[in-house]
Amino acid sequence: MSASGNQRSRPSPSRWSKRRTRWLIVAVLLALAIVPEFFVTHYAHFESLGIELDARFGFYAWYSFFACGAMIAIAKLLGIFLKRRDSYYDE
């Protein structure tokens, strides 16, 4: 049905190696994004309120990942109730 789904269900050997390279590149990129964290100091935006979460190590990385994961999960969940065939209103 979906293009991405098909790709996943029938992976050919050459695709496997392609995907491995792709993930490798991603991993390197992510590592590159984390490394400078050792040299750059983030300052806490709400220091005066005693909130220093956003100055912790790698905050933006994990916060972004989990926020996106949560949003996708919520969307999936709502989708169960909200999704209809796209001809729904034409009937």
């Binding site: 991603v26 994004a33 972004s64 990942f65 996106c68 909200l82 209809r84 065939r85």
Partner: peptide, 29 residues
């Protein structure tokens, strides 16, 4: 740096959760 991290890890979430984002021929109420 923080912006790059934000975007790259959002990207990670996207590709990691790609199966969940499978598009369907639907509309949302």
């Amino acid at each position: 740096l923080s912006q790059f991290q934000l975007l790259l890890f959002a990207g990670l979430a996207f590709f990691a959760l790609l199966p969940l984002l499978k598009q369907t021929l639907t509309i949302s109420l």
